[in-house]
């Protein structure tokens, strides 16, 4: 983890302060180091709605992740548990992780939830649309930040 974070800094320092998004209908955001410090919508998300988004099948999180969701029978194990993630990362870091995890690790399998460019052969139903809206990203960030128990 330490080695990886150093590598990330090398990668991200160069990008610090650049406006990363002018993609279509997406709202612009600014990456600072390994985070997007400012809310995409200018307001705080709702953690209750965020939890519902994370567990809903169509939003795909539980394909790969498990977490503190005792009512969910099927949870994936391709990635770290979401338990305690709010203690490991601040809101800005969680926001960049959701918006475009490939900026943190170019080889990650985690999809970029708020990105529409640089994708191949996207099916027509999904083309030009981010997986989650800016409002949904903020709700999920607000929820993940509450997951402080390891």
């Amino acid at each position: 983890m330490n080695v990886r974070r150093c590598a990330l800094l090398v990668l991200l320092c160069a990008a610090t302060g650049t406006v990363a998004s002018g993609q279509g209908s997406l709202r612009p955001y600014v990456i600072v180091d390994d985070a997007i410090p400012a809310s995409l919508t200018g307001t705080r998300g709702d953690p209750g709605r965020g939890r519902a988004i994370v567990v809903a099948r169509q939003n795909t999180c539980l394909l790969c992740h498990s977490g503190p969701f005792p009512e969910e029978r099927f949870q994936g194990n391709l990635s770290p548990s979401l338990k305690g993630t709010g203690a490991r990362w601040n809101e800005g870091q969680l926001r960049l992780r959701l918006v475009d995890a490939s900026r943190l690790n170019a080889h990650t399998i985690m999809p970029s939830y708020y990105r529409v460019e640089g994708l191949n052969r996207v099916a027509p139903a999904w083309r030009g649309k981010p997986i989650l809206s800016a409002e949904q990203i903020e709700d999920v960030v607000a929820y993940l930040a509450t997951l402080r128990d390891e």
């Binding site: 099927f74 994936g76 999809p111 994708l119 996207v122």
Partner: peptide
Amino acid sequence: NRRQGQLNLSCGQCHDDNWGKRLAG
């Protein structure tokens, strides 16, 4: 090995790198 689709995954990322693990159920 080419990433594709809105989820931006390649076949190999699941079937070479993560076989034996659980994708949800």
